[in-house]
Design a protein around this nucleic acid. Structure first.
Lengths: 180, 180
DNA sequence: TCAGTACGCTACTGTATCGTAGCACATCAA
DNA sequence: TTGATGTGCTACGATACAGTAGCGTACTGA
């Protein structure tokens, strides 16, 4: 099963959802087509799992970090997760969530939001603790940070590392920080 | 021909490139399939034109504007262009450039960069004129602004208007502006 | 009137793809 | 040994789609 998913992920990364056909995955993984249908009811469910496999996981920051450290922690995790395979090469396809998989309820429409949830949490905490104005529009701030990360990841020339993550947080905070 | 493209755009917006089949466009537009092949050599070329039709056009700012006004001008244009149909509903599909169309050379791989070119130009001018540091990494700044715009447009709840555009520029400049 | 141009229609070929049926084989535990 | 489970293989049927052939029709300008 891992071999199947690995092959599916590779096909997805290279050619998008269109390339993830049952026959192609079967051949690439060396697993018989019939066997695949014993693990997934549908091509759409396989595609949904493939999609999820490509999403990076952003952990919640440890409790002992202060709001700024917490924000840096999640943005670093997001940048690094989005910056490496399979997320990075698959990113365009991840943004265009496969409609088939959504319509067949194999994927919820907002799958990707789960990836960003820890970032939103860190922003909210920064607002509550007055690192940024308490009245901050959290969604707007999310668009600001996540958009920066995604655009960077979409540019193949861009290095995705802690330096970039900290830079993004610095620019974010400098633009919004409230003086003590 | 306009009717064909209009139908193709609608299908693209609703269902992505996969929905833009020759038969579907033919039926939706009321134009015979054979007629379509008299205007486009290929399904890929039709898809490429459909794609371009969805891209917003961001004009260069008038020469008489100062760097800050110029930046506001292009960001407003980008926000408004991305915020309305067909660009906004098609945006996920625009980011995941149809690989078929690219491989068949009907679309260049960097189509979308042309849309952002005026933004890059305005940023560069802002740096040259010391509105932001002369050493500013222009590509980084592009990712910052364009990413913010795109993430906002991807969120259906977000209002895309001049207020948002100015807010984006404000946050950008506050984080980077050099004191006189 | 006549040639050129553009369009429509039906029917067709060829291919890719999903999904299933039916049968054989191997491994492992009771 | 035997039954359960998991896998493989070949061969299908059904559908969707790209692209073409061949023929007829309507308009337009000389």
């Amino acid at each position: 099963m891992d071999a199947i998913l690995a092959a599916a992920v590779q096909l997805f990364v290279q050619g998008g959802p269109r390339a993830v056909t049952v026959d192609a995955v079967s051949e690439a993984s060396g697993v018989a087509k019939t066997t695949m249908y014993r693990h997934w009811t549908d091509r759409n469910h396989l595609l949904a799992d493939t999609y999820r496999q490509c999403l990076p996981v952003v952990p919640e920051p440890p409790r002992e970090l202060d709001p700024e450290q917490g924000l840096r922690f999640v943005v670093r995790a997001l940048v690094n997760g989005m910056g490496k395979a399979p997320a990075r090469p698959a990113l365009p396809h991840l943004i265009a969530t496969p409609l088939d998989a959504v319509e067949s309820r194999a994927l919820p429409p907002d799958v990707m939001d789960q990836t960003f949830a820890p970032v939103v949490g860190a922003i909210r905490r920064a607002a509550v603790d007055r690192l940024i104005p308490e009245t901050t529009d959290v969604l707007e701030a999310k668009h600001q940070i996540v958009g920066f990360v995604i655009m960077s990841a979409l540019d193949p020339a861009c290095e995705m590392n802690d330096v970039l993550a900290d830079r993004i947080v610095d620019l974010f905070l400098t633009g919004r920080r409230v003086p003590d």
